[in-house]
């Protein structure tokens, strides 16, 4: 039987961590783009569009991410596409992230006082211009801390993709456990690696929030 040193275990886990990071980045950036689109739909002036966006958000926030992964994995196959795990994982995570980011950002847009909308309307701006030049620049400022905070959820969400067979940190943990029979050490290390990824994000989110509060204290 092969003996595994702690370094062997750690090295293999760290190699798999690259995939966790890559998938997190793809999901976050892709989710951000889809989320922005969804935000525009969510605050559209047409009711049907608003209702559609609300249903989308409710659907993705009200069902388990794991189920969304399963449906992406098995559902896409119905169209005759051979779905690799990374595609289902990326797609499901992007759509899931978009729902949450859109809802977070909606809160930020609605926090901008009505006077700003009225003032820009009185300057003859169209709705897109209002968003582009007046509302979003202000909303983006308050949106930064919760958005960074949500990125932690995205990193943790990628762990579920191991269940549909995408080999990232969690899956590597399972594989290495099966080879070494040291679940305590392996899952402990896996948890520490996730912690090392997520904790700086959590902390910077908190720090940004505090900084913003200081900036707003005198208003």
């Amino acid at each position: 039987m092969t003996e595994f040193t702690l370094w062997d275990i750690l090295r293999n886990l760290l190699l798999a961590t690259r995939w966790t990071i890559l998938l997190s980045l793809v999901s976050f950036v892709g989710g951000g783009l889809v989320g922005l689109l969804l935000l525009f739909l969510r605050i559209s002036s047409r009711k049907a569009v608003r209702v559609f966006a609300r249903c989308y958000i409710e659907l993705f926030q009200g069902t388990p991410l794991l189920m969304q992964l399963f449906i992406a994995f098995f559902g896409l196959g119905l169209f005759g596409i051979d779905v690799p795990a990374w595609l289902a994982a990326g797609l499901a995570l992007i759509l899931w992230t978009a729902a949450f980011l859109a809802e977070i950002w909606r809160g930020c847009v609605e926090a901008i006082t009505k006077g700003q909308w009225e003032a820009s309307a009185s300057l003859g701006m169209g709705r897109l211009q209002q968003m582009r030049y007046v509302i979003l620049p202000q909303a983006m400022k308050i949106a930064v801390p919760p958005t960074v905070g949500f990125s932690v959820q995205v990193v943790k969400g990628t762990a579920l993709t191991s269940i549909i067979g995408f080999v990232e940190l969690s899956k590597a943990g399972t594989v290495v456990t099966n080879a070494t029979f040291q679940p305590f050490t392996v899952y402990g290390l896996v948890a520490l690696i996730y912690f090392a990824l997520c904790w700086p994000l959590s902390k910077s989110s908190q720090m940004l929030e505090r900084k913003l509060n200081v900036a707003h204290r005198n208003h």
Binding site: S170, P183, F184, G188, S202
Partner: peptide, 15 residues
């Protein structure tokens, strides 16, 4: 708060 629930579960059940 900074580790996935899945890993917490595996740690408790297998570890």
């Amino acid at each position: 708060r900074n580790t996935p629930f899945l890993i917490q579960l595996f740690f408790i059940f297998f570890g």
